[in-house]
Amino acid sequence: MYGALWRVLPGPWPVKLLLLLILIAAVLAALVIWVFPWVDSFLPGLLLEGDVTIGAGITG
C-alpha cells in the first residue's frame, strides 16, 4: 500500500517526502479533531477525570 501511495505522489523524492509528511499530519489532525472525540463520547467510563492519585500505596 505504501509503495502504491509513493508511486501516485507527483514529483521527485524530496517533493514526495514533503507531500507524504503533509498527508500524515493531516490524517493525525483529523483523528485528534474528529475521530478521537467521537470515540470518547461512546466510552465515557474508560477515562478517569480527576480521580487519579499519584503515589498512593507506595510504602518506603
Rank of each mutant, 00 (worst) to 15 (best):
Y2F: 12
V15N: 06
W13E: 06
W13I: 02
L21K: 11
I24F: 07
A25N: 03
S41Y: 01
Y2L: 15
G11C: 03
G3A: 03
P12D: 12
F36C: 06
T53P: 05
L23P: 04
V39E: 06
L17H: 09
A26G: 08
A29R: 14
I24N: 05
L47D: 13
G57L: 01
L18K: 09
A30Q: 09
A4R: 09
L21Y: 08
V15I: 13
L18W: 03
L46M: 09
L5E: 11
P14L: 03
P12V: 04
G57S: 01
V32Y: 12
T59V: 11
A29I: 07
L48E: 08
P37R: 03
P44C: 06
A25K: 09
A56S: 08
I54C: 01
A25H: 01
L23S: 11
A56P: 02
V15F: 04
A25W: 00
G55R: 05
I22Y: 01
L9A: 07
T59M: 07
Y2K: 00
L20S: 15
D40E: 14
P14M: 01
A29S: 13
M1C: 03
K16R: 10
W38T: 14
V35L: 14
W6Q: 06
V52L: 04
W34S: 07
V15C: 08
L21I: 09
V52F: 10
P44R: 08
M1P: 05
A29E: 06
P12S: 13
L9G: 02
K16Q: 03
V27C: 11
L18E: 02
L43F: 14
A30L: 13
D51P: 00
G3D: 04
F42W: 15
A29H: 12
Y2R: 13
V32Q: 15
D40N: 11
P14V: 01
W38F: 11
G50Q: 10
L28P: 00
L31R: 12
S41P: 02
L18P: 00
P12K: 14
L19M: 05
I33A: 09
L28K: 13
L21M: 09
L9P: 01
G45I: 06
V15A: 05
A4C: 08
V15P: 04
V27H: 08
V32H: 11
G50R: 10
V39R: 15
W6M: 08
V8N: 00
D51Q: 12
L31Y: 13
A56W: 00
A25Q: 09
T59C: 07
G11L: 05
F42C: 10
F36E: 14
G60L: 15
G3P: 00
W13V: 01
V35D: 07
Y2G: 12
D51T: 09
A26H: 09
